[in-house]
Lab assay of single mutants.
Amino acid sequence: NQESVVAAQLIPINTALTLVMMTTRVVSPTGIPAEDIPRLISMQVNQVVPMGTTLMPDMVKGYA
């Protein structure tokens, strides 16, 4: 089963992602794949992401 990127903390809107903000977990439905974490660093979220929420492609500016 593929791991997806999950918020390790509350991420406010327009925050640039850092490694410490993200963790990985096997979730359903699947979100952004864990191997894309290096690509996500410094990208901004376009909404508030509560802790434990799976990051979906449409939540990250410039990802999709």
Score class of each variant (00 low, 15 high):
residue 1 N to Y: 12
residue 1 N to A: 15
residue 2 Q to C: 12
residue 3 E to A: 06
residue 4 S to F: 04
residue 4 S to N: 02
residue 5 V to D: 00
residue 5 V to W: 01
residue 8 A to I: 10
residue 9 Q to A: 06
residue 10 L to F: 07
residue 10 L to E: 09
residue 11 I to T: 01
residue 11 I to P: 00
residue 11 I to V: 10
residue 12 P to H: 11
residue 12 P to V: 03
residue 12 P to W: 12
residue 13 I to S: 04
residue 13 I to R: 09
residue 13 I to H: 11
residue 14 N to K: 08
residue 15 T to A: 08
residue 16 A to H: 05
residue 16 A to V: 10
residue 16 A to C: 05
residue 16 A to P: 13
residue 17 L to W: 01
residue 17 L to C: 01
residue 18 T to I: 05
residue 18 T to L: 04
residue 18 T to Q: 05
residue 18 T to P: 00
residue 19 L to F: 11
residue 19 L to S: 10
residue 19 L to I: 07
residue 20 V to D: 09
residue 20 V to K: 13
residue 20 V to G: 08
residue 20 V to F: 07
residue 20 V to P: 07
residue 21 M to W: 04
residue 21 M to P: 00
residue 22 M to Y: 01
residue 22 M to R: 00
residue 23 T to H: 14
residue 23 T to L: 09
residue 23 T to S: 15
residue 23 T to C: 05
residue 23 T to K: 13
residue 24 T to W: 11
residue 25 R to T: 09
residue 25 R to W: 06
residue 25 R to N: 11
residue 25 R to V: 14
residue 25 R to F: 15
residue 26 V to F: 11
residue 26 V to G: 07
residue 26 V to L: 12
residue 28 S to P: 02
residue 29 P to W: 03
residue 30 T to A: 11
residue 30 T to K: 04
residue 30 T to Q: 13
residue 31 G to N: 01
residue 31 G to W: 05
residue 31 G to Q: 05
residue 32 I to K: 01
residue 32 I to Y: 02
residue 33 P to I: 10
residue 33 P to R: 08
residue 33 P to K: 08
residue 33 P to E: 12
residue 34 A to E: 14
residue 35 E to G: 07
residue 35 E to L: 05
residue 35 E to Y: 06
residue 35 E to K: 05
residue 36 D to V: 13
residue 36 D to L: 14
residue 37 I to H: 03
residue 38 P to A: 03
residue 38 P to G: 13
residue 39 R to G: 10
residue 39 R to H: 12
residue 40 L to N: 00
residue 40 L to D: 00
residue 41 I to K: 06
residue 41 I to M: 05
residue 43 M to G: 14
residue 44 Q to Y: 06
residue 44 Q to V: 10
residue 45 V to P: 03
residue 45 V to G: 00
residue 48 V to Y: 09
residue 48 V to K: 09
residue 48 V to N: 15
residue 49 V to M: 03
residue 50 P to D: 14
residue 51 M to P: 07
residue 51 M to V: 05
residue 51 M to E: 11
residue 52 G to L: 09
residue 52 G to A: 06
residue 52 G to M: 14
residue 54 T to M: 03
residue 54 T to H: 02
residue 55 L to E: 00
residue 55 L to G: 00
residue 55 L to P: 01
residue 55 L to T: 01
residue 56 M to E: 09
residue 56 M to V: 13
residue 57 P to D: 09
residue 58 D to A: 14
residue 59 M to L: 04
residue 59 M to H: 09
residue 61 K to L: 10
residue 62 G to I: 07
residue 63 Y to E: 04
residue 63 Y to C: 13
